[in-house]
Computed example of a mutant assay.
Amino acid sequence: METYTAMRHFADSWGLLAMALFFVGVIVFILRPGGKKAADEAASIPLKED
Results as ranks from 00 to 15, higher is better:
residue 46 P to K: 01
residue 42 A to S: 10
residue 15 G to A: 00
residue 27 I to A: 13
residue 30 I to Y: 14
residue 10 F to Y: 15
residue 33 P to V: 09
residue 32 R to F: 13
residue 27 I to M: 15
residue 27 I to D: 07
residue 32 R to Y: 09
residue 2 E to I: 14
residue 9 H to P: 00
residue 22 F to N: 03
residue 13 S to Q: 12
residue 5 T to G: 00
residue 10 F to T: 01
residue 12 D to M: 04
residue 27 I to K: 08
residue 1 M to Y: 04
residue 4 Y to G: 02
residue 50 D to L: 02
residue 19 M to L: 15
residue 23 F to S: 11
residue 44 S to M: 05
residue 50 D to V: 03
residue 15 G to Q: 01
residue 9 H to D: 14
residue 23 F to K: 01
residue 37 K to C: 00
residue 22 F to D: 00
residue 40 D to F: 04
residue 50 D to Q: 02
residue 19 M to C: 13
residue 47 L to S: 07
residue 15 G to M: 01
residue 2 E to L: 14
residue 24 V to G: 08
residue 36 K to E: 10
residue 40 D to P: 00
residue 45 I to E: 12
residue 11 A to T: 02
residue 37 K to W: 06
residue 31 L to A: 15
residue 23 F to H: 02
residue 49 E to R: 11
residue 34 G to I: 10
residue 32 R to K: 15
residue 45 I to D: 03
residue 2 E to V: 10
residue 19 M to H: 06
residue 3 T to N: 13
residue 19 M to I: 12
residue 47 L to Y: 13
residue 43 A to W: 05
residue 47 L to D: 08
residue 7 M to G: 08
residue 14 W to Y: 12
residue 38 A to L: 13
residue 48 K to L: 07
residue 25 G to V: 11
residue 34 G to T: 09
residue 26 V to N: 11
residue 48 K to N: 01
residue 42 A to L: 13
residue 38 A to G: 05
residue 48 K to R: 14
residue 23 F to D: 00
residue 10 F to K: 13
residue 16 L to R: 08
residue 10 F to A: 05
residue 25 G to P: 05
residue 26 V to D: 10
residue 42 A to D: 11
residue 21 L to A: 13
residue 32 R to P: 05
residue 46 P to C: 09
residue 20 A to W: 10
residue 15 G to T: 00
residue 10 F to I: 05
residue 3 T to V: 13
residue 27 I to F: 12
residue 3 T to C: 09
residue 9 H to S: 09
residue 15 G to W: 01
residue 25 G to F: 14
residue 42 A to R: 07
residue 3 T to Y: 09
residue 10 F to M: 05
residue 39 A to R: 14
residue 2 E to Q: 15
residue 46 P to S: 02
residue 45 I to F: 10
residue 23 F to Y: 05
residue 8 R to Y: 02
residue 22 F to I: 07
residue 18 A to V: 03
residue 25 G to M: 12
residue 21 L to S: 13
residue 33 P to Q: 12
residue 41 E to V: 00
residue 47 L to W: 07
residue 41 E to L: 02
residue 18 A to F: 03
residue 29 F to W: 14
residue 38 A to N: 12
residue 44 S to Q: 07
residue 8 R to N: 01
residue 23 F to G: 08
residue 24 V to P: 01
residue 5 T to S: 08
residue 17 L to V: 04
residue 7 M to S: 12
residue 31 L to N: 15
residue 31 L to E: 14
residue 42 A to Q: 08
residue 14 W to T: 00
residue 11 A to E: 07
residue 22 F to S: 06
residue 5 T to Y: 05
residue 44 S to V: 02
residue 2 E to H: 14
residue 48 K to A: 06
residue 20 A to N: 06
residue 10 F to E: 04
residue 35 G to D: 04
residue 43 A to N: 11
residue 34 G to V: 06
residue 21 L to M: 15
residue 45 I to L: 13
residue 10 F to L: 14
residue 42 A to E: 04
